[in-house]
Nucleic acid binder design. Structure first.
Length: 206
DNA sequence: CAATAGATCATCT
DNA sequence: GATGATCTATTGC
């Protein structure tokens, strides 16, 4: 675990020297594997960065909780496209949620990013949140992390194997202990263990 | 602490 | 016209 003082001085530039962008092959796999393996990876966008500590798998046609369950519509089009792209949508009229498209083109899986441990650009994140949020609360929630990092629907469909929004793997990649739990805030398929969280961090959502 | 109300709009019925 | 992969503030114990 990175100490808070150390995290404050960590810059995106330094992160980029010590990590590599995940390639399309990472995303072109079964959604459950992609979700589990995203835990511990680093999300980077315009001067801000955070470690993914919570992610949920949405299994398309096989999953009633997934947007793509009903099939191809205007909204779900990017889910049916190639992997390694962002799917960003508005929920409850207020919050933007970030997902990454998984599975080969034509198979509509995706992974919802639910919480981050802020690593760099923390001042910028606080400014975006405009509040007195603690570090633990700064990006712990799907709506919180998109607001903190300036991620909006403009990025819907963007290729995340090349900037401005990318996911990176540290060259010295520590193994993360990952726990599977039921997903949060859904009506259908409540019991499936499709939420993956990093063990022992205080940065997961409530 | 826990429970709940209210905000607010794209998408789908 | 209803709903939702949420968050915050507020109320009440």
């Amino acid at each position: 675990m990175v100490a808070i003082k150390e995290a404050e001085i960590l810059t995106v530039k330094r992160l980029e020297e010590t990590s590599a962008i995940l390639d399309r092959g990472f995303y072109e796999r079964p959604t459950i594997e992609v979700a589990r393996d995203l835990v511990g990876k680093i999300l980077v966008h315009r001067g801000t960065a955070g470690r993914i500590v919570e992610a949920e798998a949405y299994l398309g046609r096989l999953d009633r909780a997934a947007h793509a369950w009903r099939g191809l519509t205007d909204r779900t089009r990017v889910l049916f496209g190639p992997p390694g792209h962002a799917y960003v949508y508005l929920i409850y009229g207020i919050h933007e949620c970030l997902n990454f498209v998984s599975e080969p083109a034509g198979v509509p899986g995706c992974v919802l990013i639910r919480a981050l441990e802020p690593l760099a650009g923390i001042r910028t994140m606080r400014r975006h949140r405009g509040s007195v949020a603690s570090l633990a609360a700064l990006a712990s929630g799907p709506g919180r992390l998109t607001l903190a990092m300036g991620i909006t629907r403009r990025l819907n469909g963007a290729d995340v194997t090349r900037g401005p929004l990318v996911v990176r793997r540290l060259k010295i990649d520590q193994p993360w202990e990952v726990i599977a739990t039921p997903r949060i805030g859904i009506r259908h398929e409540k019991d499936r263990l499709l939420r993956f969280i990093a063990a022992g961090t205080r940065f997961v959502s409530r």
